[in-house]
């Protein structure tokens, strides 16, 4: 059984979504996360700017 399928055995989790291996690996992929870091920061700066 794949890791992401294990928790679906519990009834409470059966209607949720659980990330697979690729999605999990992208969360800690330094290159991809650096790109996301830049994008998130730009968005947050815009939100801060709109809030003042």
């Amino acid at each position: 059984m794949k890791e992401e399928e294990l928790n679906f055995e519990k009834e409470q989790f059966s209607l949720t979504m659980i990330p697979g291996k690729f999605a999990r690996s992208m969360r800690t992929c330094v290159i991809w996360q650096f790109i996301r870091f830049v994008i998130i920061n730009v968005k947050m700066i815009i939100v801060v700017g709109k809030s003042h």
Binding site: R27, T28, Q33, F34, R36, F37, K43, M44, I46
Partner: peptide, 14 residues
């Protein structure tokens, strides 16, 4: 456009 969420290391760095 400005209500978003994502999971990853980038959040740790922030």
């Amino acid at each position: 456009d400005y209500t978003f969420g994502e999971i990853g290391l980038a959040g740790h760095w922030i």
